[in-house]
Design a protein around this nucleic acid. Structure first.
Lengths: 270, 270
DNA sequence: CGTATGGTTGAACCATGTCAACTATAGTGG
DNA sequence: CCACTATAGTTGACATGGTTCAACCATACG
């Protein structure tokens, strides 16, 4: 990686994680400046805002959201052990979440695209359990959790909102466990590409042609493989005519044969 | 397994999963009979009941709980696709949750001991996403989710309750992803035993001596390994003097050397 | 142009899977 | 009580998918 994980162009980490009573601090100034987000204009608002709220409550909720915190490539939105204050939405760019082992090994637990929520891991323990690192220059919206909880007390849609996001995360992780526990390398790579394609499609982008925001190493890490293995299967899929692969630019030429488990890939593969 | 997964001595699956308007049905009779559980007398109530409730609310909550549904060894508490109605607590025995792939492959996503909650996977989609199968004759308490939600609307402790359970599950699954993605077989087996020991300790049982409720095959499945590999590492640990292994009876003789990542196991191992 | 980084590819290796034989134990029926 | 069977677990020999190590290529950047 060109930028070490500790280099941060601007360190946006919650100051409270290290300092108990900080001075007015850039972060608070930023929050003051951006409080009251123009979510109404944001095309991601269907994903970020709770559903089924009346207009005034909706406005209240939007006022909680502090916008446009920028995270430079390789910088951390939060790190393991940081005090939990906000949930975050990716607005632009993409962010990975990484679990760390004592000996330095890492497991990427998710790649988060615009509209995805981050920080759910910390809801119980009041500190984050993983690092969140920007894969490219990213912007996020922050949603102060304490205030969301408070608002949830007498607003049912807000109440169900965090629960819904958490439950989604539980299901997503279960599927990933199935991938890590039971699938072959080939199936993992195919599943990864299909998942990504679906998620781009959900965001109104082409599911058949996209640019990977992450390196081979990160894909491999996420899938429980090495970068070489990922590269090899990309090449296989390319030679089988299933994909065009040009560095991080992917074009899916035959989505049917990307369905893992069918054996189509293997049969057609080198 | 001596009993097929489809044999159920008594089929307690929610009838609504298959029949839209069933007659009074054994299940409903059972619920009527057992409604209003004696949670006050249950030693697991610290785990099952929300914290911080006033006595009257606490009583209300306990009245929601239907007790003592029995699940015979190998029978299902619920299956993938079943309509979601209840969360469950294991009262006695143990229950595994299993994700299924189209081609028949399975991944065990958890072993649930007394006090553990089941069914969180279904909160969003209103159907379960995995099977829950009893490893031995088990009893569970059922907690109708709709009523919990309703009660949560004006009772803050209940509100935070499901959220807390969900968030715990997210963290647990993340740790499992780290295990499946990054650990060696040896480390997985050690981590598994340590985790079980801790959980038995939490339940007031000895962390150093216990009986595994699951077969080698199930351990292997859970850890992303084969039964043979699990058996081999059990033997290694035995010969290294770390464990006594007699079939499913485990005695941990040197807990320090069960710490994975330290290399202690490998150094002492065969 | 030289250097750094990311990606591809090949060859050798090895951790784990696969297959198979064997043991132990429990249940079942004669 | 003894075969007989079925299931769970152990162990060995061998196969292999994926890792490791290393060389090489492509691109970006100073």
């Amino acid at each position: 990686m060109s930028i070490s994980q500790h280099q941060t162009v601007v360190d946006f980490r919650p100051a409270t994680a290290r300092i108990s009573a900080p001075p007015p601090s850039p972060r608070q100034r930023w929050e003051a400046r951006t409080q009251g987000a123009a979510c109404a204009l944001c095309h991601l608002n269907t994903q970020c805002l709770p559903e089924g709220m009346a207009a005034p409550e909706r406005a209240d909720f939007m006022r909680l959201i502090a916008r446009h915190r920028k995270i430079a490539t390789g910088a951390a939105l939060f790190r393991e052990g940081d005090v939990f204050e906000n949930l975050y939405f990716v607005k632009t760019g993409s962010i990975k979440t990484v679990m760390l082992m004592d000996d330095g090994r890492e497991q990427i637990t998710g790649f988060h695209l615009p509209g995805d929520m981050l920080g759910l891991d910390a809801i119980n323990g009041c500190v984050h359990t993983c690092d969140a690192i920007a894969l490219d220059d990213a912007r996020v919206c922050a949603l102060p959790f304490a205030q969301v909880s408070r608002m949830g007390r007498d607003c049912a849609p807000v109440q169900g909102y965090v629960q819904h996001k958490l439950a989604r995360e539980v299901v997503r992780e279960q599927q990933l466990m199935l991938l890590l526990g039971r699938m072959t390398a080939e199936e993992r790579v195919a599943a990864f590409l299909r998942d990504l394609a679906n998620r781009f499609a959900e965001r109104g982008q082409s599911p058949n042609e996209f640019t990977l925001p992450m390196a081979r190493e990160e894909i491999g890490n996420y899938l429980g493989l090495t970068l070489e293995t990922v590269s090899r299967y990309f090449s296989r899929l390319k030679h089988a005519g299933v994909l065009n692969v040009d560095n991080r630019h992917i074009r899916i030429r035959d989505a049917r044969r990307l369905v893992s488990g069918s054996g189509a890939m293997t049969a057609a593969g080198a």
